[in-house]
Design a binder for these strands. Structure first.
Length: 283
DNA sequence: TAAGATAAGAGGGACAT
DNA sequence: ATGTCAGTCTTATCTTA
């Protein structure tokens, strides 16, 4: 089980068995009865996924005493309750954004934990006024992408943009804005994260994956990776390791599975061959 | 048919004006 | 703010084994 990836992977063969990670746990645990008793009072775990963090009240008609007057009064109260919750534009904005976040996460099979972080990032962006003048869906997609990066969950900007209604350019603009304004320190994208994802869709062995990771480490230690796209590097490393292991994969297959072009794979492949001595001899 | 080569164009970062 | 430069990646097309 690879928690970073949000995937369930077979340890023997590297096959991705399922990529839906359900997070059904409450956010706390009770170890003793007394503790449990104490915690009964905290209510549901709060969540950033609801625009009001799950703390709002709702009115329901009282089914027991349904006098005509009472139900009218209740209806009025409920109306005001709803109004007071939704009246501010920022909260309306949030509620829309949370919907979009849910839709995207669903499409991309992202675990709830990532969605939570995406929601938190979106809130910050909204508080800083970054959403004004931009589309909610684009900023939401960008926030979710940022969440993938902070949690080291391998999703590409491209995947985000195909799931979103917005174009890649617009989302990446928002993403860079978020980087600058709200989330200055994100870990750099690690190519190794993409390896098992790519490998399992083209059916490469775990052995080949391990080898590919090793190759990437070598390349990194030689300063060959800076400035290069992480996905292309991962795909090329897999191509090399497949050759070494005698497993059959075409550049075309890897290109399809990874979302980069064959040309890019070829270029990275060439770089790896020239840059790493022990590969020069074998290939 | 897969792999390699080449060229043109897009988009974005760094840096200067 | 705007322009230029170097470098990456994509798309398209042709050649090679």
């Amino acid at each position: 089980m690879d928690r970073d990836m949000g995937e369930v992977v077979c340890g023997a063969c590297g096959l991705v068995i399922g990529d839906v990670m359900l997070d059904q746990k409450p956010e706390w645990r009770a170890f003793t009865l007394a503790e449990k008793d104490a915690r009964m009072r905290v209510g549901a775990p709060t969540s950033y996924l609801q625009y009001d963090k799950g703390l709002s009240t709702t009115f329901r008609p009282n089914e027991g005493s349904t006098s005509r007057q009472m139900s009218l009064k209740m209806r009025r109260l409920r109306k005001w309750n709803v109004r007071s919750r939704l009246h501010s534009s920022s909260e309306r904005n949030l509620s829309q954004a949370m919907n979009e976040l849910e839709r995207l996460s669903d499409k991309l099979k992202l675990p709830r934990s990532v969605r939570e972080i995406g929601a938190r990032i979106y809130r910050k962006a909204l508080d800083k006024g970054l959403v004004r003048g931009r589309s909610i869906s684009a900023v939401a997609a960008a926030a979710l992408y940022a969440a993938c990066r902070t949690t080291r969950t391998p999703r590409t900007l491209k995947e985000l943009s195909t799931a979103s209604l917005r174009g890649r350019k617009e989302i990446s603009r928002c993403y860079r804005l978020i980087l600058r304004e709200v989330n200055p320190r994100l870990p750099i994208d690690d190519p190794a994260k993409y390896i098992s994802k790519i490998a399992s869709t083209v059916g490469l062995s775990q052995r080949a994956q391990n080898e590919a990771v090793k190759i990437l480490r070598d390349a990194d230690s030689r300063g060959m990776v800076s400035g290069k796209g992480p996905v292309g590097l991962a795909a090329a490393a897999l191509y090399v390791s497949a050759l070494l292991a005698g497993e059959e994969v075409t550049q075309q297959d890897l290109a399809n599975a990874s979302g980069v072009t064959e040309v890019t794979i070829r270029n990275r492949y060439k770089g790896l061959r020239n840059g790493i001595d022990y590969l020069k001899e074998v290939l």
